[in-house]
Amino acid sequence: MSENSYSTLLSFKLQDEFFAIDAMRVNHILEVPEITKVPNTPAFMVGVLNLHGNIIPVVDLRLMMGFENTALTNDSAVVVINPEDQHDSSLGVIVDMVKEVVETEGLEIKPTVADKEESMLRNFHGTFSIEDQFVHIIDIEELVVAAEV
């Protein structure tokens, strides 16, 4: 668990579990648009999409987290994050469903117990529970490093 530099989180669903990222780092939430495949890349790198003339790489967070079902539904979305205020670091992340924006104030955030072997992400900023659901806070730094091909 690390210091909370953020006050709002965006939570979303991957398969049956909930995760959250710093909402201030989220630039767009899109319905899954047409994504151009980039050959010779790992499976989690879905391709690139055109967002207002910018090329944004898209990763499937479900695959990165070790989930297997990658089917898209009506709820599937691409969350475009901009981790470093730099133009070239924008990244699209496919999730199964975007849930809500949560204020961290008053939340009790506990250390995450992560034991999913297959996941590329191991460090979480903590876990809180809301409406009887555990929500794990993703470390964007780690996500960015893991997404670099």
Binding site: N40, T41, M45, N54, I55, V59, S90, V149
Partner: peptide
């Protein structure tokens, strides 16, 4: 356009 940092080394 550049592919961004994630695919730079493609």
């Amino acid at each position: 356009k550049p592919l961004g940092r994630y695919l730079k080394t493609h």
